[in-house]
Structure formats: structure tokens, C-alpha cells
């Protein structure tokens, strides 16, 4: 049964991943990405990472891919890109060789180091009849005890990302966002007397 789940999820992941890089239409690539993300979520469940599987579906498939599709539709770039044009003559074959070499290197390292994959931690708690949410509890205990500082820094990162995106996405004035902010202020003060 576990073998069956693994093979199905692996097929989903690989078909989706190949779809992302060979489909010429950006919308099709985004939908292939959804297939891959769902496959990864299935493997998360198979590895007792139930909370992360849910977050994977909600954040990746739900938010990030929708954001991609939104940008594609918003900008009207949803037309097929011709894959025939090869900007640099040998780029495609070289890229495939680089990919195969990368896979060979990582795979070799994994096979070489597989002896070190020995259980050494306290072990993952799996869902039982008594507690169905043990994975969430264990994750929360680790997150809010050992990594609480990193968790707080994450909030700063998100605030910076939001502010940066607002600055980037705003239509700039004559000389950038700062100038447009000053313009806004001056127009507000100028508009007051009238």
C-alpha cells in the first residue's frame, strides 16, 4: 500500500514537473505546478507530516499558484511562448547535461551517505486513536521552544515583503516612489485651501 502511494505520488510529481518546463503556455505550466504540489503534499502525509501537508495545499496550491495565475491574467501574458527559438545555440543540450550531472551528483551523495540515516532523535509522534493531532502538537512544541526567535524574525520578514511589494507595484511618479509620495503630500496641502 505504501509502495502504491509512493509510486502514484512520484508519478504525479514528475509528470507535473516535466509539464512545468515543457508546456509553452504559462497557464498550463502553472496548472502542472499544482499537480506537482499536490503530489508533494501526498508524500508529506505518507511521511507523517500532516500539518505541513495541509499548509502545502493551502499556501502553495491555494495562494502561490493563484498569485501566479493572477499575474498571468493581469498582465495578459497568457499567450504561448514559442519554444522553438533558442537564444544561445547550445543552451538546451548544455542545460540537460547540467541537470543530469546535478542529479548524478546528488544521487551519488545520497547513496554514499545512506548508512548515516540512523534514527537519533526522539522520534516523530504519529496519530493514534487517542490523539489525532500529535503531529501539530509536536511541531508547535518545537517551533515555540527551540525556534521562537526565528519565528518572530519571520514576522519582520513578512512585513518587509509587504512594504517592498507595495513600493514596487505602485505606479511611480516622475522620479520614483519617494517623489510621488512628496507629490501626494504637496498636492494634499495644495488642495486644502481651495
Amino acid at each position: 500500500m505504501q509502495l502504491f502511494v509512493f509510486i502514484c505520488a512520484a508519478l504525479m510529481i514528475l509528470i507535473g514537473a516535466v509539464g512545468v518546463i515543457v508546456r509553452s503556455h504559462p497557464v498550463h505550466a502553472a496548472l502542472s505546478l499544482v499537480l506537482t504540489l499536490f503530489g508533494v503534499a501526498v508524500l508529506f502525509v505518507a511521511q507523517d507530516a500532516h500539518f505541513l501537508a495541509a499548509v502545502q495545499v493551502i499556501v502553495y496550491a491555494g495562494a502561490i499558484v493563484v498569485l501566479f495565475l493572477f499575474v498571468i491574467m493581469l498582465l495578459g501574458v497568457d499567450r504561448a511562448e514559442s519554444l522553438r527559438i533558442d537564444p544561445v545555440k547550445v543552451q538546451r543540450p548544455l542545460a540537460v547535461i547540467v541537470g543530469l550531472g546535478l542529479f548524478g551528483l546528488i544521487g551519488g551523495a545520497i547513496l554514499e551517505g545512506r548508512k548515516t540515516l540512523i534514527r537519533r532523535g526522539t522520534g516523530l509522534e504519529t496519530a493514534t486513536e487517542v490523539s489525532h493531532d500529535s503531529n501539530i502538537k509536536q511541531l508547535a512544541n518545537d517551533l515555540f521552544s527551540n525556534h521562537v526567535f526565528a519565528f518572530e524574525v519571520t514576522s519582520v520578514l513578512l512585513v518587509i515583503a509587504v512594504v517592498g511589494t507595495v513600493l514596487l507595484a505602485r505606479r511611480p511618479g516622475k522620479s520614483g516612489a519617494v517623489a510621488s509620495a512628496e507629490e501626494l503630500a504637496s498636492s494634499a496641502t495644495a488642495g486644502k485651501p481651495s
Binding site: 505541513l52 502553495y60 502561490i64 532523535g121 526522539t122 511541531l139 515583503a161 511589494t165
Partner: peptide
């Protein structure tokens, strides 16, 4: 390895990925 730390790391990777996609 029987260590929950890997899953905690994935949590942070998800957050950073979301921020990265937005920017």
C-alpha cells in the same frame, strides 16, 4: 532521523517562499 526539526525547517521554508514569491 526521528527528529521534528526537519518539519520545523520546512515551515520556515514555506514562509520564506511565500515572501519571495510576493516580492
Amino acid at each position: 532521523l526521528g527528529d521534528i526539526g526537519g518539519q520545523t525547517t520546512v515551515f520556515f521554508v514555506l514562509v520564506v517562499a511565500a515572501a519571495e514569491v510576493v516580492v
